[in-house]
Design a protein around this nucleic acid. Structure first.
Lengths: 341, 341
DNA sequence: GTTAGCAGTCAACGCCCGAGAGTGCTAACG
DNA sequence: CGTTAGCACTCTCGGGCGTTGACTGCTAAC
């Protein structure tokens, strides 16, 4: 059905198109990739490949361009494995040799790195509070009328927030509030935390007034969709480098999409804990705005805990072997940093 | 020199150009703005205004367009005062009636609001740690090998960071480290904190090893330029709506500029504590990338402390009266929220 | 099955031309 | 002397048109 020569022709077309962004013709293939056959033969193969749905023609007298299916077949069956170049490796090493003390900075830097090395737009999802299991709550008084509320999760994640405290709350009551919160919440996962627990807490502790209210508010807020993911983007403007987005309307579509955090989170699959690199191509994404884009993602960890996804978004016409290699390398590198925050 | 009629003509040209984005001709002025004179007369006035540098001609047979100087004169002398519309007011009120518990969220929401109401790109600078005066440092142990380092400033700002603790550090030593840090740092402003103090601390406390090291690292990091400002952008894609940025190259210039946090921080004047609204027009900004842009900024507070700047960036051709009114309204509204975080 | 040759198709480019918008100049007017 | 009408001139923009070049698909020969 799809013999060796067809594979070679398809691979040549994909790679040439990725490199040049121009529809590729039979002549070009015959000249640049020596398959030992004439353009006419290649034309026949191309015609077959088009019938099978792997190629498309922008118009009758133009060359061929890979279809979604063509790219898919390429990444699944034809794409050569590639490891990162020494230069890329060096760049990665350099980025992480600086001591980085905050998750926020780490992710921000990683996004920049990913974007710089792939020349595409990078997306990374930050730690997800709601997946974590409560270990402890602390209330640290600050001055007379405020306190720092600290949530510690079993993954070692620490979140905190300043709350205002009614002046009449005593040191003792302070401890009591913390204790009650601890009792009720310990061992619960944020996203499975029953609202009923929250309501019970609220009733029981109503006499502590706004202090408790704020603590609960903070928790509830984390449960609301849309507040769940912190997303980091890097190199959004690289979209402008892509000839496919020379058209301002298409560009607007993609860029506005990137401004909607929750939509992007969904599309990169923050919640799916898959192994290895995942590739989504064009209409596979099922979003009009991204019909001309591909997304490559990988799950990453910190220490041994899954944190989220990192990936790139760019035109379908991207250097998949390179992108996959780099993404793999960076995701592993970060995952093995073995640091806690 | 510049009589009443010239003022009226200039004002008409600026406002018409702002509305239409087309060079405006003498006929248009005579028709739409009834100054009671013929197009020929207006042509003479326009010619004068061009000689004086207030207007420019894209080419000989086109209408006139305001120059930087023209816009400057307009905003300084001609621009009608305008207050916000009921709809705008309502939109602002709605945004802030939701209880917002975190500075981060507050600023993010404000940026969105500012961008939505002005239809321009919004920029807001967050609280600046280095301007604050130290009040207190706390070290809260978390588990056996970590601690939360909390910095409290006299402005009520709280920053914190998780640090790793060598296991051999005892509870007592913990308190000692905190005390020594407190003694040395209390009352110092971050940005005037002498490196010598840090070094002295480092010598004196070297036996506490990495715990202290990390505390100091955190402080030093805040002192590095580039790490100083947290910047929030809203509605970057609105740049695409502007006809002046239909050209992808110009667009790229502006958008890449917006990705450089420190450059944007400088340009909006995070460090200048000015009163009222400031307007920068075109080449006044002295940056090639922003030669076609204007920037309107205002200082804002939270409670009674100056936090930073908020503003918008858009094409020179923007509705200054509207933008100024909205920015004023939002900056005041936020400033008067009178909440602490 | 492969290839050379050839006719046919289509986008892109450059060119020209006319329409339209707007100016500057001049001369006349009050 | 300021204002105005009239007119010639300039320049952009868009459409129409023919040329060019890059492909393809088909056919017939190898």
């Amino acid at each position: 059905m799809i013999d060796d020569r067809k594979n070679k022709v398809l691979q040549a077309i994909v790679e040439d198109y990725v490199a040049t962004a121009e529809p590729v013709g039979s002549r070009t293939i015959a000249r640049k990739y020596n398959l030992g056959v004439s353009p006419a033969t290649i034309r026949n193969e191309m015609s077959d490949l088009e019938d099978m749905g792997y190629l498309e023609q922008p118009h009758t007298s133009a060359g061929r361009v890979p279809s979604d299916l063509g790219y898919r077949y390429y990444v699944d069956c034809l794409m050569p494995a590639r490891s990162i170049s020494p230069a890329e490796h060096e760049r990665i090493r350099q980025t992480f040799q600086r001591k980085i003390r905050e998750v926020d900075t780490l992710i921000r830097e990683t996004a920049r790195l990913l974007s710089d090395t792939t020349q595409l737009t990078a997306v990374i999802s930050g730690p997800q509070f709601e997946k974590a299991v409560f270990k402890e709550i602390r209330l640290v008084p600050l001055g007379r009328d405020r306190a720092l509320l600290i949530y510690i999760t079993d993954r070692g994640l620490v979140e905190n927030q300043v709350v205002e405290v009614p002046v009449e709350v005593t040191m003792l009551e302070f401890q009591q509030v913390a204790e009650i919160l601890n009792e009720q919440l310990r061992g619960h996962r944020m996203d499975t935390l029953p609202r009923t627990v929250l309501q019970a807490l609220q009733r029981e502790l109503s006499r502590y007034g706004s202090l408790l209210e704020q603590a609960l508010y903070f928790l509830e807020q984390r449960l609301e969709p849309g507040e769940r993911h912190r997303l980091y983007l890097g190199g959004t403007t690289r979209m402008l480098d892509q000839p496919e987005f020379r058209d301002v309307e298409k560009l607007r579509g993609v860029l506005s999409f990137l401004e909607q955090e929750d939509a992007v989170a969904t599309v990169i699959g923050v919640d799916k804990e898959t192994e290895g690199v995942e590739i989504q191509i064009g209409e596979e994404i099922r979003l009009r705005e991204l019909a001309d884009c591909s997304i490559v993602t990988a799950t990453y960890r910190l220490g041994d805990e899954i944190i989220g996804k990192m990936g790139v978004i760019g035109p379908r016409r991207m250097e998949y072997p390179k992108v996959v290699a780099i993404l793999n390398a960076i995701a592993s590198y970060v995952s093995e940093l073995n640091r806690r925050f």
